[in-house]
Design a protein around this nucleic acid. Sequence first.
DNA 1: TGAAAAATGGAGTGTCAACTCCAAAATTTG
DNA 2: CAAATTTTGGAGTTGACACTCCATTTTTCA
Lengths: 214, 214
Amino acid sequence: MGNGRVSAARQRGTSNHRLTAKGRATRARIVTAASRLMLDRGVGRTTIADVQAEAGVSTSQLYHYFADKDALVYAVIEHQADEVLGFQGKSLAGLDSFAALEAWRDDLVELQRQRDNVGGCPIGTLASELSETDEHARGELAESFVRWEKLLHRGITAMRDRGELRADADPDRLALALLAAVQGGLLLSQTRRDSTPLAVAIDQAIAYLRTLRP
Amino acid sequence: MGNGRVSAARQRGTSNHRLTAKGRATRARIVTAASRLMLDRGVGRTTIADVQAEAGVSTSQLYHYFADKDALVYAVIEHQADEVLGFQGKSLAGLDSFAALEAWRDDLVELQRQRDNVGGCPIGTLASELSETDEHARGELAESFVRWEKLLHRGITAMRDRGELRADADPDRLALALLAAVQGGLLLSQTRRDSTPLAVAIDQAIAYLRTLRP
DNA sequence: TGAAAAATGGAGTGTCAACTCCAAAATTTG
DNA sequence: CAAATTTTGGAGTTGACACTCCATTTTTCA
């Protein structure tokens, strides 16, 4: 791993090769395997050999598609961001009422409960582990957070436009606080193995929103 | 490192030896050095050799005071918890008004700004990295969060008792949400290298509290 | 003061993990 | 179909890192 090195070769691996259907499938298998492993033991504790075993590929396959472990990590970040934002996108799609907001909260809490509070937010976990040691990773993760925030921002704005919130409610600050509540709640829930913190954190954020009704 | 092993020998190292003043000093030097390093590159990326260099001690010294890297990590957790809770204890000591609450928020934001938003919460960072791979560490960190939460709880209760909050304000939920806001805000600030998320997250939590005045 | 205990020095060891390399098989494409 | 390209196999290398071991110095305390 790079340990904060300049990280050339970031683009090598797959981007300048033409991938066949088979190749794309193999690559995808590697990325999902790595994502799974890195989510629940962290990047540092996931070895290339682990990923090989989980994905059922050989050493040369892995290094054929990824220049080095860093490149694989970047692919994992992209994959997890798509995953999380996909889920959030669906859950927040028609966000325009307090009922919808509560449904979103329930989705999140239920997901975490199903996992028995093992593991936190895929993006948050990667951000915490990589922010200080891999500048490129930090940038990508920061951008993922921004995209997530925008989904919330859009929903809050929609609610305001529908007259569910006062005109002077500030969607920027509200969306940011909501995202922070999710991240903090997930971290506490993961550490305590109890979904209550997540539920309460989001709930209080929503309760504040409720005080901003016209 | 243990990688989730059963971790016997947790207590060996120092606890069954009598430490002289010199010994205590050396041990302390090791712990603070390790804490510093582990805070800003993570546990996994901090090697024993790094700690030796930073503390100015030899291999045998390190292993004289700590059975293995796990034992050192546990000492670091304890040290960081004392550090953070000490700071929080001071900052929250006479918490009994909204002005005091805002001063606390400013303390946190200012601290983060001084660090240029490099690094997050010492406890939160360790929790994120270790929760899934070291059950003992997870337990200690969960307990540290509880202690932190209690400081907030005490403050909120004091405010309620002084008549700054309505009688039906729920200190349990409010303290939990406040802590989540801090953790989430710190993670976002660290990832974005911008103290705004932390400031906004805590601020909105306080704004909600303000709606609970009599 | 002198034996016991604690603290320190530092070379050495074994394992693990990232990455290289040389082929060979499968697939595409002209 | 044949040449070019992509995909796969897997043994081997190199370095890093946690931890051991034995000897020496320093400190304690009866």
